[in-house]
């Protein structure tokens, strides 16, 4: 389990990195924290000719809050987000402990996880639930991609050739928005067998807006629009929970693998969503 041969560079500016990526085209890959890419190299599942390490680029390490939310540079580590906190963005805080283990979060990056688009990963689900914005940089400038358009299949994103994810904007939510992040993994720190993320607004005990997402149940995280509709305008009483959970189980199309069948994943999503809604209910 040794990586195949490749050439490596570690530019200190984003422009330089973009140049290298442009010059080497398909043969090049950006390397952020490497917590997914290096295992893939070790398994020889990835064979780039050139690795462009973007870890030394200062511009990609910003982490600040502006009027639209938290702006998190692509190579900000998950550990830094966990440690420094993201006030006003509760869902991100709730999701962080589920990402691998401390040693993974120490190197793993927010941008890397989102760009990698693992169907079972947590941050893509958070991004989709909150309606985050991905900002792609290329030699032509920057381009904003909404989360709903970013994920393009398992391990696939909608970045164009020559583009690098430079930062992600996670919207902050008002204090009235209540969030829950629920994941079922076989062991703590493993990839999810199934998970749900919820951000729900209430007025007088009734749901005014619900953003519900399931992950690890398909190619990419998926908004549970039927489940959202099932709770719209309602108190989260037993009947609403049941309606929403049943709608979620019906609307997803999960896969089978050695940890569970499609049917099992439907049951999991129903159970997890029910608990998430119980948690956010005022």
């Amino acid at each position: 389990m040794k990586p195949p041969p490749f050439a490596y560079c570690r530019p200190h500016s984003l422009d330089e990195a973009l140049e290298f990526l442009a010059e080497h085209g398909d043969e090049a890959r950006p390397l952020a924290g490497g917590q997914s890419l290096v295992p893939m190299l070790n398994h020889r599942l990835a064979r780039p000719a050139v690795l462009v390490d973007i870890g030394a680029i200062g511009d990609l390490q910003r982490m600040d809050r502006n009027e639209s939310g938290w702006v998190i540079g692509a190579t900000v580590t998950q550990r830094r987000v966990e440690r420094d906190g993201t006030e006003g963005c509760d869902l991100l805080r709730l999701a962080m402990p589920f990402i691998g283990h401390r040693q993974i979060r120490a190197r793993g990056t927010v941008g890397g996880s989102i760009a990698h688009a693992d169907p079972a990963a947590e941050l893509p689900a958070v991004a989709l639930t909150l309606g985050a914005t991905m900002v792609a940089a290329s030699p032509d400038g920057e381009r904003e991609i909404p989360a709903a358009a970013f994920f393009a299949g398992p391990y696939m994103n909608s970045l164009e050739d020559g583009e690098v994810l430079s930062h992600v904007i996670f919207p902050t939510v008002p204090p009235t928005t209540r969030c829950s992040f629920r994941e079922f993994a076989r062991r703590k720190g493993d990839f999810a067998v199934a998970g749900v993320a919820a951000a729900v607004d209430f007025e007088d005990g009734s749901v005014t807006a619900a953003s519900l997402t399931a992950f690890a149940v398909g190619a990419n995280p998926v908004r549970l629009t039927s489940a959202e509709a099932a709770v719209a305008g309602r108190h989260l009483d037993e009947a609403a929970l049941t309606d929403s959970a049943e709608a979620a189980a019906a609307e997803i199309e999960p896969w089978d693998d050695i940890h569970g069948s499609s049917q099992y994943r439907r049951q999991l999503v129903a159970a997890l969503l029910r608990r998430a809604l119980q948690e956010v209910a005022p």
Binding site: M1, K2, Q35, V38, N42, L51, Q103, I104, A106, R107
Partner: peptide, 24 residues
């Protein structure tokens, strides 16, 4: 394991515990 799971290769890198088998 050379895939970042078992933790046997953990070292202290700049004050953080990291897995040295999935770093270059």
């Amino acid at each position: 394991c050379e895939q970042g799971i078992c933790g046997a290769c953990t070292i202290n890198l700049d004050g953080e515990p990291v897995r040295s088998c999935i770093m270059l």
